[in-house]
Amino acid sequence: MVTVTWATGVSLLQVVAATGCGLVAGLLFVFSAGVLTALGRLPADDGAVAMRAVNAAVLNPLFLGVFVGTAVVCAVLVVAVAVGGGPVTAAVAGVLYLVGVLGVTVAVNVPLNEALAAGRVGWADYRRRWGRWNHVRTTAATVALVLLVAA
């Protein structure tokens, strides 16, 4: 018979959160490491058109399920550690994902995507600002993953 304890629940949440953080960190890293550079080598109008296409295509159930699902699991993990105990580093990781990945996305990257789509921001400015904040998201997701694995 398998007994599920509070600690087992936290451990399971850690595994699921770590998996999600790893997937998100990898995707964000690809943008920081290559995609933005590649798009920056295109003529400005072509780069902007390509990025708008990427922004539209990424809004799909697979990506949103992992991205938002990881945020939900991280939030539940934070509450589980606060209420029932568990590794504090796991709760810190959850907060880091919520603030450094989800929060930055909602506060900075999505509004920049909307501004690009509406023509309210130039390609060079968009790429510089979006890229800088994507580095923050990449770092936050990666550090959250490391903390979850270490916990």
Rank of each mutant, 00 (worst) to 15 (best):
G9V: 00
G9C: 03
G9E: 04
V10M: 11
V10K: 12
S11P: 04
S11Q: 13
L12C: 08
L12D: 07
L12R: 08
L12E: 09
L13M: 13
L13Y: 11
L13R: 12
L13T: 10
Q14M: 13
Q14V: 06
Q14E: 15
Q14Y: 09
V15P: 00
V15F: 15
V15L: 15
V15K: 03
V15G: 09
V16M: 13
V16H: 14
V16S: 14
V16P: 04
V16Q: 09
V16C: 14
A17M: 04
A17D: 08
A18W: 08
A18T: 09
A18C: 10
T19Q: 04
G20E: 15
G22D: 13
G22K: 08
L23A: 14
V24D: 12
V24A: 08
V24N: 07
A25Y: 13
A25Q: 14
G26N: 13
G26P: 14
L27W: 06
L27R: 06
L28E: 13
L28Q: 11
F29D: 05
F29R: 04
F29S: 02
V30C: 08
V30R: 05
F31K: 05
F31P: 03
S32V: 13
S32P: 10
G34A: 07
G34W: 02
G34T: 14
V35Q: 12
L36G: 08
L36S: 02
T37G: 14
T37Q: 02
A38C: 00
L39C: 04
L39R: 04
R41V: 00
R41T: 03
R41L: 02
L42M: 15
A44F: 00
A44N: 05
A44D: 11
A44T: 11
A44G: 01
D45P: 02
D45V: 01
D46R: 01
D46V: 04
D46W: 06
V49G: 04
V49N: 04
V49Q: 03
A50P: 02
M51K: 05
M51D: 03
M51S: 01
M51Y: 07
R52G: 07
A53C: 07
A53G: 14
V54F: 02
V54L: 09
